[in-house]
């Protein structure tokens, strides 16, 4: 009987635990970007990156 009660409670607990909302929620805060992090931001603005784009600009858009 006790075993059965414990089993029922555990089962119920187990089943109920599935009802919890996932924790992967983005809570909005005004003015704060909380989207995915763009890997471009890691290189954007670095010297190498800028140089590459400048060269590319001169190659394709500057008068030849």
């Amino acid at each position: 009987m006790r075993v059965r009660t414990i089993a029922t409670v555990m089962l119920a607990a187990l089943l109920l635990s599935g009802c919890y909302e996932t924790t992967d929620v983005v809570i909005h805060e005004p003015g704060i970007y909380k989207g995915a992090k763009d890997p471009l931001l890691a290189v954007d603005g670095t010297a190498g990156f800028e140089e590459k784009l400048s060269e590319r600009f001169m190659e394709g858009q500057a008068p030849r």
Binding site: H28, I32, L41, D44
Partner: peptide, 19 residues
Amino acid sequence: PVDCFYTTEDGVVLHDKDL
């Protein structure tokens, strides 16, 4: 209203479509 925009160091305005 959901702040899905961000700006790169170089001034490019992008956004997250999931938001």
